[in-house]
Amino acid sequence: MKKALICGVSGQDGAYLAKLLLNKGYTVFGASRDAQMSSFGNLKRLGIYDDVKRVSISINDFRSVLQTLQRAKPDEIYNLAGQSSVGLSFEQPVETLESISVGTLNLLEAIRFTGLPIRFYNAGSSECFGDTGNVPADEQTPFRPRSPYGVAKAAAFWQVANYREAYQIYASTGILFNHESPLRPERFVTQKIVAAACRIAKGSRETLTLGNIDIARDWGWAPEYVEAMWLMLQQQNADDYVIATGKTHKLSRFIQVVFEAVELDWRQHVQTDPSFFRPTDIAEGYANPAKAKKQLNWEARCSMEDVGRMMVEEKMLAEI
Rank of each mutant, 00 (worst) to 15 (best):
residue 307 V to S: 10
residue 259 F to W: 09
residue 263 E to D: 15
residue 316 M to P: 00
residue 269 H to I: 06
residue 87 G to Q: 14
residue 145 P to N: 04
residue 53 K to H: 13
residue 298 W to G: 07
residue 314 E to I: 00
residue 8 G to S: 02
residue 99 S to E: 00
residue 116 L to D: 06
residue 63 R to G: 13
residue 4 A to K: 05
residue 302 C to A: 13
residue 104 T to Q: 06
residue 140 Q to P: 00
residue 205 R to Y: 02
residue 93 P to S: 08
residue 234 Q to C: 07
residue 3 K to L: 04
residue 13 D to I: 00
residue 83 Q to E: 14
residue 108 L to F: 11
residue 235 Q to E: 13
residue 280 T to N: 15
residue 97 L to K: 01
residue 251 L to F: 10
residue 56 S to Y: 10
residue 191 Q to M: 15
residue 126 S to Q: 12
residue 8 G to Q: 01
residue 176 L to C: 03
residue 32 S to K: 11
residue 111 I to K: 04
residue 259 F to L: 06
residue 25 G to T: 08
residue 129 F to I: 06
residue 273 D to H: 08
residue 54 R to L: 15
residue 84 S to K: 09
residue 269 H to G: 07
residue 63 R to D: 15
residue 313 E to K: 14
residue 286 Y to E: 01
residue 41 G to P: 05
residue 287 A to Y: 08
residue 146 R to C: 05
residue 133 G to F: 06
residue 154 A to C: 08
residue 167 Y to T: 01
residue 12 Q to P: 02
residue 156 A to N: 02
residue 278 R to E: 14
residue 68 T to S: 15
residue 260 E to T: 05
residue 266 W to T: 02
residue 303 S to C: 04
residue 188 F to I: 09
residue 206 E to H: 02
residue 293 K to C: 05
residue 98 E to Q: 12
residue 7 C to L: 14
residue 190 T to C: 11
residue 229 M to Y: 11
residue 116 L to A: 12
residue 250 K to D: 01
residue 129 F to T: 01
residue 36 Q to Y: 11
residue 185 P to N: 14
residue 79 N to L: 04
residue 318 A to S: 15
residue 130 G to D: 02
residue 68 T to K: 13
residue 205 R to D: 14
residue 172 S to K: 01
residue 260 E to L: 03
residue 201 A to P: 03
residue 244 A to D: 10
residue 310 M to F: 14
residue 297 N to T: 06
residue 274 P to F: 02
residue 37 M to T: 11
residue 236 Q to L: 09
residue 137 A to L: 08
residue 113 F to V: 04
residue 185 P to V: 12
residue 173 T to C: 15
residue 268 Q to T: 06
residue 228 A to R: 02
residue 129 F to K: 00
residue 263 E to H: 14
residue 181 S to Q: 07
residue 130 G to I: 02
residue 221 W to H: 05
residue 53 K to T: 12
residue 72 A to Y: 01
residue 238 A to W: 04
residue 295 Q to A: 12
residue 80 L to K: 01
residue 156 A to E: 04
residue 47 G to D: 11
residue 124 G to S: 10
residue 182 P to Q: 12
residue 184 R to A: 12
residue 61 D to T: 08
residue 177 F to E: 02
residue 307 V to G: 13
residue 57 I to R: 03
residue 301 R to C: 07
residue 93 P to L: 07
residue 29 F to N: 03
residue 244 A to R: 09
residue 98 E to S: 10
